[in-house]
Design a protein around this nucleic acid. Structure first.
Length: 563
RNA sequence: UGUCCCGUAGUGUAAUUGGCAACACGUCUGAUUCUGGAUCAGAAGAGUUCAGGUUCGAGCCCUGACGGGACAACCA
């Protein structure tokens, strides 16, 4: 496509960005834009969170605003400091920062408590002494109105006294709750006198045992937004029905024209995986994966360990967009994003996963040549390196066939291929173990006139990667595939997602042969193993025992043709 | 028998105040290539869930169906 035509394409913005642009134009909030990213510290961030992060931080960045990091830590039972550092690390890794604006909903427990007291005094909240199941049954159903609690009409003074005593620790968990007095007949369930405070005696990871009552999400989120001067509170679609309650609470709180606006967008769904933090935690606890950072997990730390770059994830998020349509995105688009990124940046190296020895019978046994190999054909500035070559090399086992099919451009009896960066060789014979049928060695002759870079005109159809048998280093290579073999493992009503775990999602290969330059590769360093795919150094890797993870394979049209 | 949200190529998104349905991925050709990768050139694929209405003109506005989703945690 020409530059001109590219320029003609109008930059399209999401419906949310359009709201922001319009507000800015109207001078709303004095042209101020302030968002927040509000994770609950009860698990690791996954790629779905990345979608929210890119929007929250991205919109602020793009339009000259700010984005706060705010931990939504209103439930000490589920939350833990363990998660806080990892969440911060992952956001930084993606390339976003929040300066000194690191906040916690628990920072506002005092103000929230005061606000609750204010509501009680104004007759807009009351303490309910009924147990959970009774309160629940009085809520009615989505199609039937609820009925009022007998405690709804009790005096403000009595509620106030009870609420204070709830926080003193005088009552057991579950014995009393504070409810907003709104409308038990509302068609919106969330408006039927929602519970706004409950008694919890588990110590909080930040406030210890200062509090015995904790605000519910709905009573903390909008108010926290308000306290921080947030202008756009962006969240996923399932909070749409909460918006009237969000607005109702802000209405009771606000003292000026300013108010934060909640806007909902579609959450990210990816094929062959799931985003439920609860279920991902189960996978970890049940040891179905090695941990939160297992390279098969959709977590950011998992993707990082798998070899994904933050740029590729941001590019992916950019490609899928933000709408109100509940969609399921194809993982192949994520794979496209990482291939596109790594194709440009990663050095090419030789690695043989399933080695088959080739002996070059007319090459002197005591000779070693240092072949000069281009590091990255996409980037000349990356230069070249020397790779040793001798009379014994390993090639990929499936690059040789005794009896090849049509259009097999690789090695077979009597055929010629180029060993990339070295010579053209011809297969003269091979040795096969007749009882097992396994090919043990292949014998070739090379043509000295075809050395790469010598200007040889000779062309062959196939080019193979190879590693000198005498110089290769041994490595473990972990081949990863999708964790589930069902497109939507968690969405099957009658089937547990565990039934769709892909038994072939991890294949561990040992005795792989890599070119010697890889010996000094650093953790997470990324390479293209020529003709195979993109790989990175795993955390488990040591110089004595290198371990590589396959991030994603190269596109393989030959494999497709053979299906 | 509720309320709210959403229906545009296989998938994900576009389409300024109504004006020839566009882009990306995927798919398929061909060229090129010392990676069966990459790159380049090209093709196929929806007439916008359906039915009415308003209009010179509707993917966009209105009405009604149909389909999908959310909502009845002392979770977020």
């Amino acid at each position: 496509m020409s530059e001109e035509k590219k320029d003609e394409l109008k930059p399209s913005v999401s419906f949310i960005e359009q709201f922001i642009i319009d507000d800015l134009k109207d001078g709303k909030n004095n042209g101020r834009i302030h968002t927040r990213f509000p994770p609950e510290p009860n698990g690791y961030l996954h790629i779905g969170h990345a979608k929210a992060i890119c929007l929250d931080f991205g919109m602020a960045e793009k339009h000259g605003g700010k984005c706060n990091l705010r931990f939504d830590d209103t439930n000490p039972v589920k939350e833990d400091v363990e998660y806080i550092d990892s969440i911060k690390e992952d956001i930084h890794w993606l390339g976003f920062g929040w300066d000194d604006r690191e906040f916690y909903a628990s920072d506002y427990f005092g103000k929230l408590f005061e606000f609750a007291i204010d509501l009680i005094k104004r007759g807009l909240a009351y303490v309910d002494d009924q147990p959970a199941d009774v309160i629940s049954s009085q809520k009615g159903t989505p199609s039937q109105p609820g009925t009022m609690s007998p405690f709804r009409s009790r005096s403000a003074a009595e509620s106030l006294d009870l609420f204070y005593r709830m926080n003193e620790g005088e009552f057991e968990e579950g014995s009393h709750v504070l409810r907003a007095k709104i409308d038990m007949a509302s068609p919106n369930m969330h408006m039927r006198d929602p519970i706004i405070y409950r008694i919890l005696k588990t110590p909080h990871h930040r406030t210890g045992d200062t509090w015995k009552v904790y605000p519910m999400y709905d009573f903390a989120h909008g108010q926290s937004d308000y306290f921080e001067g947030i202008t756009y509170s962006l969240c996923t679609l399932e909070f749409e029905v909460h918006r009237p309650l969000y607005d109702w609470l802000v209405d009771q709180l606000k003292t000026s024209d300013y108010r934060p606006r909640q806007i909902e967008f579609n959450r990210l769904n990816l094929t062959y995986t799931m985003m439920s933090k609860r279920k991902l935690l189960e996978l970890v606890q049940e040891k179905k994966v090695s941990g939160w950072d297992d390279p098969r997990m959709p977590t950011l730390c998992g993707l990082r360990r798998r070899g994904y770059t933050p740029e590729s994830i941001r590019r992916f998020i950019d490609l899928i967009g933000y709408t109100k349509v509940e969609a399921i995105n194809d993982v192949s688009l994520l794979e496209y994003a990482i291939r596109e990124d790594l194709n440009l940046r990663s050095p090419r190296v030789f690695g043989v996963l399933d080695p088959l020895k080739v002996v070059i019978t007319n090459y002197p046994a005591d000779k070693v040549e240092e072949m000069e190999i281009i590091n990255n054909p996409e980037d000349e500035s990356k230069g070249t390196r020397k790779v040793p070559f001798c009379n014994e090399v390993f090639i990929e086992r499936d690059d040789f066939m005794e009896d090849p099919p049509h259009k097999f451009f690789r090695l077979a009896p009597g055929t010629e291929v180029r060993l990339k960066g070295a010579y053209i060789v011809k297969c003269e014979s091979f040795r096969k173990n007749e009882s097992t049928g396994i090919i043990e060695e292949v014998y070739c002759t090379y043509d000295p006139a075809t050395r790469s870079g010598s200007g040889s005109e000779k062309k062959v159809k196939g080019t193979l990667h190879w590693v000198s048998a005498r110089h290769a280093i041994d490595a473990e290579v972990r081949l990863y595939d999708r964790l589930f073999d069902h497109e939507d493992p968690a969405g099957q009503k009658d089937d547990d997602y565990r039934n769709f775990l892909n038994p072939g999602s991890l294949k561990v290969l040992t005795g792989c042969k890599l070119e010697p330059s890889l010996k000094t590769a650093k953790k997470l360093e990324k390479f293209q193993f020529q003709r195979l795919g993109y790989f990175c150094v795993d955390y488990d890797s040591t110089e004595a025992h290198p371990v590589f993870n396959r991030t994603v394979s190269l596109k393989d049209t030959w494999a497709k043709v053979n299906k």
